[in-house]
Amino acid sequence: MDKLALKSAAEKFERELAKIGGDPEAVSLRAATLPLIDAAKAGRIEAPLQWREIPGARLFSEGNLRRYGDLEGAYSAFRVELTGGESDTLRALKASMPSH
């Protein structure tokens, strides 16, 4: 685990959540992920999580949070770090999408 990268991702995700403010789904996302955010910021996460264990995904697919692009990006980046950092697939995908 790259605890510094994880902490940075957690802080960025938290900032994006704060920007959204009162959107009820964003409030739900914050409530769902706050324990992980706090643990990541405090350096208490020692081992990678399973992606499926991280709450909140349904709020993007079945809800409307995807309209907040920066929030989705920060949420995904946070989860990448929570699951152990960039995988081979993500690195390859990034390489194939240089414009981003």
């Binding site: 499926r52 692009g69 990006g73 995904s76 990448v80």
Partner: peptide
């Protein structure tokens, strides 16, 4: 097309997790 690699990867992982 506007979504970056991290978002696309995240969405794919979300689907596969279900």
């Amino acid at each position: 097309p506007g979504a970056d690699a991290t978002k696309i990867y995240g969405r794919a992982m979300d689907l596969l997790s279900t």
